[in-house]
């Protein structure tokens, strides 16, 4: 399993290159000077995959849907209280990898995960691990807002109830209020907590889903394109919220919007056809990508 670990951690050669200094590799017709130095046919991960204080560590993760090899040897750390963005064209495996991090892929029939993913040093794919507490620790927000057909209050109270986090009604009330406040939704819904959550607007529904997730105090929050079904104003609110939440939680966000990745994340990982192509600080990825595929993507040449 560790056989190809060395090649995965390539020394970042160009992260020190000052922005704006061109490294002519191939002639280009773009106005932007070309800096990427790793060729398009290279499939090993470029950049630093490790962080000093990791919460989650994934090593050589492979995912198969039946015969299809969907994710090929992905290794990356998720640091404490940081926002990591996964970008890449559709079908590149970023959502698949995200769903590996809280074992949501278990619910997909025919899906097989190989490799090692650990949360705070313990393997989450270990036989002895119960997915129930794991998913409480690693929460998830989905692409489409999916509030339960219950009241706003019951939506947020769902997690605390099933995990027995509170003993009294008063505690539950406080927890619901605190979660809604942290999700920035309290002021909008405090007078109608008994109304169905499905009656809220799309952006409010998504914030309700975030409130529902943080009500069980997870360590890591996974967000799978949380804004793709929302309008720009609702998107701005969610992004603000992600920023605030990153003071307490590690957040992994899959997004198709490169602006969004640039705005909310500290680190960015670029996926391409099941390979993790490049990982680096968001600033470096967007200003001086090392891999030509990354550069192609962020400059809008494809994807």
């Amino acid at each position: 399993m560790n056989a190809n670990r060395e090649v995965l951690c390539m020394e970042p050669e160009l992260t020190e290159t000052p922005i704006g200094v061109a490294t002519p590799v191939t002639p280009t017709t773009d106005t932007m000077p070309r800096r990427a130095s790793v060729g398009r046919d290279v499939r090993n991960t470029v950049g630093t995959i490790t962080v000093p204080n990791p919460r989650m560590e994934a090593r050589d993760v492979n995912v198969f849907y039946g015969e299809k090899h969907a994710l090929k040897g992905v290794s990356i750390d998720i640091g404490a209280k940081e926002v990591v963005a996964f970008i890449g064209p559709s079908g590149c495996g970023k959502s698949t990898f995200l769903r590996c991090l809280n074992r949501m892929n278990d619910t997909v029939s025919g899906c097989r995960v190989a490799g090692q993913i650990s949360l705070d040093g313990s393997d989450i794919y270990d036989r002895k691990v119960d997915v129930v507490p794991l998913r409480a620790q690693v929460g998830m927000v989905f692409q489409k807002p999916n509030p339960f057909p219950k009241s706003i209050y019951e939506n947020v109270a769902f997690g605390p109830r099933i995990h027995g986090l509170v003993n009294h009604r008063n505690e539950l009330d406080e927890l619901v209020e605190a979660s809604l406040r942290r999700a920035g939704l309290w002021e909008e819904v405090k007078d109608r907590l008994d109304q169905p959550g499905t009656g809220l607007s799309g952006g409010q529904q998504q914030r309700l889903c975030i409130a529902r997730t943080i009500a069980v105090s997870p360590d890591v929050i996974l967000m799978d394109e949380p804004c793709s079904a929302l309008d720009p104003i609702a998107t701005a609110k969610i992004e603000e919220l992600i920023d605030e939440l990153s003071q307490n939680f590690s957040i992994v966000i899959v997004t198709h919007s490169m602006q969004q990745a640039a705005r909310v994340s500290q680190r960015t990982a670029y996926f391409h056809l099941g390979h993790l192509i490049e990982v680096g600080s968001t600033r470096d990825i967007f200003t001086s990508p090392q891999h030509e595929l990354t550069e192609d993507y962020i400059t809008g040449r494809f994807g």
């Binding site: 619910t107 409480a136 339960f148 769902f158 099933i162 997730t213």
Partner: peptide, 25 residues
């Protein structure tokens, strides 16, 4: 399916998901 995913992602077991989310819906 998104409702089931939502409940499972909060750490509900399958029967909790069915009892508290799927059947009410």
């Amino acid at each position: 399916q998104s409702l089931r995913d939502g409940a499972l992602a909060l750490g509900a077991t399958q029967s909790e998901t069915i009892r508290r989310v799927v059947i009410p819906a």
